[in-house]
Design a protein around this nucleic acid. Sequence first.
DNA 1: AGCGTTTTGTTAATCGATTAACTTGCGCGG
DNA 2: CCGCGCAAGTTAATCGATTAACAAAACGCT
Lengths: 350, 350
Amino acid sequence: MAIGIKDVAARAGVSTATVSHVLNGNRPTRPTTRQRVLQAANALGYAQNQAARNLAVGRSSLFGLVISDIRNPFFPEISAAFQDQALLHDMDAVVLNTNYDDHRMLNSVKRLIGLQVAGVAVLTSEIDPAVTALLEEREIAAVYLDLGKVDRLVANISIDYEHGIAEALEYLGQLGHRRIAYIGGPPHLLSARRRKQAFLDSMRATGLEAGHAIDADFGVKGGYFACSKLLAASTESVPTAIVAANDLTAIGVLHRAHDGNLRVPEDLSVIGFDDILMAEFTQPALTTVAVPRSEIGRTAFQALWSMLGEPGGEPGAAGREFRLGTRLIKRQSALPPRTPPEERDASDQS
Amino acid sequence: MAIGIKDVAARAGVSTATVSHVLNGNRPTRPTTRQRVLQAANALGYAQNQAARNLAVGRSSLFGLVISDIRNPFFPEISAAFQDQALLHDMDAVVLNTNYDDHRMLNSVKRLIGLQVAGVAVLTSEIDPAVTALLEEREIAAVYLDLGKVDRLVANISIDYEHGIAEALEYLGQLGHRRIAYIGGPPHLLSARRRKQAFLDSMRATGLEAGHAIDADFGVKGGYFACSKLLAASTESVPTAIVAANDLTAIGVLHRAHDGNLRVPEDLSVIGFDDILMAEFTQPALTTVAVPRSEIGRTAFQALWSMLGEPGGEPGAAGREFRLGTRLIKRQSALPPRTPPEERDASDQS
DNA sequence: AGCGTTTTGTTAATCGATTAACTTGCGCGG
DNA sequence: CCGCGCAAGTTAATCGATTAACAAAACGCT
């Protein structure tokens, strides 16, 4: 049988109210009683019944975290950071995958509402308006990614793709690249559109003529095939550098280059996006624009936490906008474009 | 203010009990009343208050899933599969990372108990006995990985490392390898010990003399340095093939080989373990022993689900042992040991 | 019609915490 | 020595569902 607050109270020789006060620190308690209670709780291995607690305080200690797919290496870090923060504040997180399916997303949020979560972070790349509407109607604190709108209970984290991309293009420009192609993500995803736009704008700003920009699917194979297309162009317009919309795509490019006997970075420079863990360990290590994933998770939690008011009345802070930067991580996949042919020979024992 | 069962009852002109019966289907209800209730609930946008529900039934619709670290590519698939199953059965999962810390693991389980979870899956590679004791004492259904013990409320999933390893060694043997080295994981982790033992046993069984078996840390860098050590041996005893305890380690080996101008698989064959997503995309694609991660997640859920009895009395099935196989995935990182020099030329356009 | 059964619905106790309102004990100034 | 005020604890109402026990209605059968 489970051990309840009553058992603790009995063992400590006080009332349940006192135990509650000690445990939650809502009221000062004399040190000696305090000790007794704490010891009793410990001895019995008491674990607060959250269900009862939530019922009483009218709010659960759960936050919901909705992501696209935990199998996508973009998300684990976000999720871990979010949970680490939760732990610090004595909360827990329920993480739900939408599998990129709007319907499933809506469903997930409904489930979360049923769980009486205190707040919901929706960190997917595309957000169904029905979701924001639902959350708003239920007056549940929410934080989104790149939704570009804040409200009393709506916070937003926007990623500054522009900066990282600009850095990347600047770098490539300094290296001497002129024909730079871009491989984007599926256009129905907001994050893919935003990245592409940032690329296009940055190219213009840097004074580089836009090379090809084609779309792929954010996957390794998509990157592979997209790269094939790029390479098939007339020799004149084959790019000397490729920027990919995410690291998985960049890895596909790396493979395609390898299969086509192109050396990276000597013959082709490649820059990825995201800086997933794997990026450090590709062959060659991927130069990439880092998206601060841990920080996204951390910030998302903080955003929710700050909007939480006292269950009684205090409204909690209004939602606000958080802006997170991106920056270029220089590794080995980008170098100056092809040097004169005579320098190329079979030996790669440098 | 939130809408409660009372509001629904009022609107439908019945008692709260009836509403509850309709919603939970514990008792048959006349179709007409049923309709009225359902409509009322719908019209009001009623959402069950899980906190109250849990308190009443004494158990939540939550399962706990304890893993080492979601950032480790071994876990996301397990977690996703577990959650997919949960969704099918109208349950949710709270996933907690232990970060390989016993203390944090115990803490996590305590949190889960507080949440009144209906069951807990502990799928870390090392399990603190205090955890099993706690769960047992609280009579909470639990499923573990390789704990080698089952009970009424304790199920176990054991991974048949032996089979996959045997396959790998057989394969290597057929290819003509004789000097095969092994790079293990940190010996304080059970899974690392089990894998190493399986390797050692298999070597003996296959009639191969055991080469070096050294321990590393399950990380890429650890693999890199371990490989260095192996390569530093006198030429006579440098292995022609290396089996790594996990794919991350194998990737480290791949890097070390590359940095040492050894070609994989021509000069050195490498076999990994786990078959993480990344394994398909290393250069060359990694031959590895696949651990059925999705199946682990799925099975873990099923194990818990089947042990769940009626909250009232029905005890639910007793815990049992599940055995999951491993098998060799042949990709490109293993080949016969170095062939006569004249066969080596630059062209790899096969 | 009369009576036992079954079906359908209601009343009210219950889950385990929180917390407002109340009691008790104690120190201290006048 | 009285009485005020604060500190420390306790009592009991409360949160919103579930569900056992009960009541009423409907049905079937002779």
